[in-house]
Simulated scan of single mutants.
Amino acid sequence: MAHGIARIGRDRFRTHIELGSHHLIADEPEVLGGAHAGPAPYDLLLASLGACTAITLRMYADRKGWPLESLEVDLQWRQEEDGPRVIRTLRVVGLDDAQRDRLAEIAERTPVTLTLLGGVSIDTYLS
Protein backbone atom coordinates (compact mmCIF):
# COMPACT_ATOMS: atom_id res chain seq x y z
CA MET A 1 0.00 0.00 0.00
CA ALA A 2 1.37 3.39 -0.96
CA HIS A 3 1.29 6.19 1.60
CA GLY A 4 2.32 9.81 1.36
CA ILE A 5 2.16 12.99 3.42
CA ALA A 6 2.22 16.50 1.97
CA ARG A 7 2.89 19.47 4.26
CA ILE A 8 2.68 23.16 3.47
CA GLY A 9 3.36 26.11 5.75
CA ARG A 10 3.80 29.81 5.17
CA ASP A 11 6.35 29.30 2.38
CA ARG A 12 3.84 30.26 -0.31
CA PHE A 13 3.26 27.07 -2.38
CA ARG A 14 6.39 25.10 -1.43
CA THR A 15 5.13 21.69 -0.31
CA HIS A 16 7.19 19.04 1.47
CA ILE A 17 6.21 15.52 0.46
CA GLU A 18 7.15 12.35 2.34
CA LEU A 19 6.79 9.02 0.56
CA GLY A 20 8.19 6.48 2.98
CA SER A 21 11.92 7.21 3.24
CA HIS A 22 11.85 9.52 0.19
CA HIS A 23 11.39 13.28 0.45
CA LEU A 24 10.36 15.61 -2.35
CA ILE A 25 9.56 19.29 -2.76
CA ALA A 26 6.68 20.41 -4.95
CA ASP A 27 6.02 24.02 -5.87
CA GLU A 28 4.38 26.17 -8.49
CA PRO A 29 6.33 28.08 -11.14
CA GLU A 30 7.15 31.74 -10.53
CA VAL A 31 4.54 32.82 -13.08
CA LEU A 32 1.88 31.34 -10.76
CA GLY A 33 3.37 32.87 -7.60
CA GLY A 34 5.61 30.01 -6.52
CA ALA A 35 9.38 29.86 -6.22
CA HIS A 36 9.79 26.95 -8.67
CA ALA A 37 11.56 25.01 -5.90
CA GLY A 38 10.30 21.70 -7.23
CA PRO A 39 7.98 20.15 -9.77
CA ALA A 40 4.39 21.34 -9.96
CA PRO A 41 1.57 18.88 -9.18
CA TYR A 42 0.86 17.94 -12.80
CA ASP A 43 4.60 17.43 -13.36
CA LEU A 44 4.55 14.94 -10.49
CA LEU A 45 1.56 13.20 -12.07
CA LEU A 46 3.49 12.86 -15.34
CA ALA A 47 6.51 11.61 -13.39
CA SER A 48 4.38 8.84 -11.86
CA LEU A 49 3.04 7.81 -15.24
CA GLY A 50 6.49 7.95 -16.82
CA ALA A 51 8.14 5.91 -14.08
CA CYS A 52 5.39 3.29 -14.11
CA THR A 53 5.57 3.03 -17.90
CA ALA A 54 9.36 2.73 -17.98
CA ILE A 55 9.52 0.20 -15.14
CA THR A 56 6.69 -1.95 -16.50
CA LEU A 57 8.15 -2.03 -20.01
CA ARG A 58 11.65 -2.83 -18.69
CA MET A 59 10.19 -5.69 -16.63
CA TYR A 60 8.30 -7.02 -19.66
CA ALA A 61 11.33 -6.84 -21.97
CA ASP A 62 13.55 -8.51 -19.36
CA ARG A 63 11.01 -11.29 -18.78
CA LYS A 64 10.88 -11.92 -22.55
CA GLY A 65 14.68 -11.84 -22.81
CA TRP A 66 14.54 -8.97 -25.31
CA PRO A 67 17.69 -6.88 -25.92
CA LEU A 68 16.15 -3.55 -24.82
CA GLU A 69 19.07 -1.11 -24.65
CA SER A 70 17.11 1.92 -23.52
CA LEU A 71 13.64 3.33 -23.25
CA GLU A 72 12.58 6.95 -22.95
CA VAL A 73 9.04 7.94 -22.06
CA ASP A 74 8.27 11.50 -23.17
CA LEU A 75 5.10 12.91 -21.62
CA GLN A 76 3.15 16.09 -22.24
CA TRP A 77 0.09 17.34 -20.35
CA ARG A 78 -2.37 19.19 -22.55
CA GLN A 79 -5.57 20.94 -21.64
CA GLU A 80 -7.85 20.54 -24.66
CA GLU A 81 -11.44 21.53 -25.38
CA ASP A 82 -12.75 18.06 -24.52
CA GLY A 83 -10.63 17.86 -21.34
CA PRO A 84 -7.10 17.05 -20.27
CA ARG A 85 -4.96 14.75 -22.38
CA VAL A 86 -1.57 13.12 -21.90
CA ILE A 87 0.59 12.61 -24.97
CA ARG A 88 3.01 9.72 -24.34
CA THR A 89 5.82 9.01 -26.81
CA LEU A 90 8.04 5.95 -26.38
CA ARG A 91 11.60 5.99 -27.72
CA VAL A 92 12.78 2.39 -27.78
CA VAL A 93 16.35 1.36 -28.66
CA GLY A 94 17.49 -2.19 -29.33
CA LEU A 95 14.27 -3.91 -30.38
CA ASP A 96 12.72 -4.88 -33.70
CA ASP A 97 9.43 -3.41 -34.94
CA ALA A 98 7.27 -6.24 -33.60
CA GLN A 99 8.83 -5.96 -30.14
CA ARG A 100 8.45 -2.18 -30.17
CA ASP A 101 4.78 -2.53 -31.15
CA ARG A 102 4.22 -4.99 -28.31
CA LEU A 103 5.76 -2.57 -25.80
CA ALA A 104 3.39 0.14 -27.04
CA GLU A 105 0.47 -2.24 -26.39
CA ILE A 106 1.75 -3.04 -22.90
CA ALA A 107 2.17 0.69 -22.15
CA GLU A 108 -1.61 1.05 -22.46
CA ARG A 109 -2.06 -1.41 -19.57
CA THR A 110 0.46 -0.25 -16.97
CA PRO A 111 -0.99 0.15 -13.46
CA VAL A 112 -0.82 3.96 -13.40
CA THR A 113 -2.18 4.18 -16.96
CA LEU A 114 -5.19 2.07 -15.99
CA THR A 115 -5.73 4.11 -12.83
CA LEU A 116 -5.73 7.38 -14.76
CA LEU A 117 -7.99 6.01 -17.50
CA GLY A 118 -10.42 4.47 -15.02
CA GLY A 119 -10.45 7.28 -12.50
CA VAL A 120 -10.10 6.81 -8.79
CA SER A 121 -12.38 7.50 -5.85
CA ILE A 122 -11.03 9.94 -3.29
CA ASP A 123 -12.42 10.03 0.25
CA THR A 124 -11.52 13.15 2.24
CA TYR A 125 -11.67 13.33 6.05
CA LEU A 126 -10.76 15.91 8.69
CA SER A 127 -8.74 14.84 11.74
Rank of each mutant, 00 (worst) to 15 (best):
A51T: 11
I25S: 07
R58M: 02
R102E: 11
V86D: 12
L57P: 07
I17V: 12
G50C: 07
L117P: 00
Y125S: 14
T89K: 15
D43M: 06
C52V: 10
C52T: 10
H36W: 00
V93I: 04
R63S: 13
E72T: 14
T89M: 12
G83S: 06
L68T: 11
L90P: 04
A2P: 07
I17L: 09
G9S: 03
A26H: 09
R12V: 01
E72R: 15
L68D: 10
L117R: 12
E81M: 09
R10D: 13
I55V: 13
D43C: 05
I122L: 15
V112Q: 05
I5C: 04
A26T: 13
T110G: 07
Y42V: 00
P29Q: 02
G83A: 03
V120A: 08
Y125E: 14
T124W: 02
V73Y: 00
L103S: 02
R91F: 04
G38M: 01
L71W: 15
T53S: 12
C52M: 09
H36E: 15
R88W: 00
D97R: 12
P29R: 01
A104C: 11
A37H: 14
S70R: 15
L49M: 12
A35Y: 14
A6W: 02
R78E: 14
R85S: 13
D123K: 10
H3S: 10
S70L: 01
D74N: 14
G94K: 06
D74M: 11
G65Y: 03
I5D: 11
G34Q: 01
T15Q: 07
A54L: 05
D97H: 15
E18I: 00
L117V: 00
L114F: 01
E30K: 12
A98E: 11
G34T: 00
